[in-house]
């Protein structure tokens, strides 16, 4: 009966060598085990809301649909890892400028997904942005300002 495993997971550049239960979800590892609470949980088991989206080796994934042990040996980036010493990332800044958030609960997941998306599509159309957002539910904004913010960030990036 082991029930636990040793893992080595790098989160926002910091390596965590830990022994954790096999069943621990990655999102709980991030939020509760190491205390980075910017990543949120909005559904039960279905993984449909996207609030828990993080980067796994740079790609946006839902951290509630993974076990933490599956991230052993990988790089995880959370919303806390987006800003750097120079301040907010262009996308974070655009969300502020364009009022792309209200309650902020879904925001971390959207920022993580859209950061990955803009890396793949530096100059997206509105249609592409809206389709890329399907995995993130937002209840407050009606998405209008979110789409505007992603466009604005793309414009900064493509300058």
């Amino acid at each position: 009966m082991s029930r636990t495993n040793e893992v080595s997971i790098t989160v926002n550049g910091e390596r965590y060598d830990e022994t954790i239960p096999n069943r621990m979800l990655l999102v709980d590892f991030i939020r509760e085990h190491i205390g980075l609470t910017g990543t949120h949980v909005g559904c039960t088991y279905e993984g449909a809301c996207g609030a828990c989206t993080v980067h796994l080796d740079g790609a946006a994934v839902k951290s509630c649909l993974m076990l933490a042990v599956q991230a052993d040996g990988h790089d995880v980036t959370t919303v806390e890892g987006l800003a750097n010493d120079d301040g907010l990332s262009p996308l974070q800044q655009a969300f502020n400028d364009q009022h792309g958030l209200q309650c902020g609960y879904c925001t971390a997941g959207i920022l993580m997904n859209m950061t990955d998306f803009l890396r793949e599509h530096p100059d997206p159309s509105e249609d592409e942005i809206r389709r890329a957002l399907i995995g993130n539910l937002c209840r407050c904004t009606g998405y209008v300002h979110i789409v505007r913010a992603v466009k604005a960030a793309a414009a900064v990036g493509t300058k």
């Binding site: 796994l56 790609a59 946006a60 839902k62 997904n113 990955d116 399907i134």
Partner: peptide, 9 residues
Amino acid sequence: VGDRQVRNR
């Protein structure tokens, strides 16, 4: 299929 995050995984 699903959404970007699901397709990434």
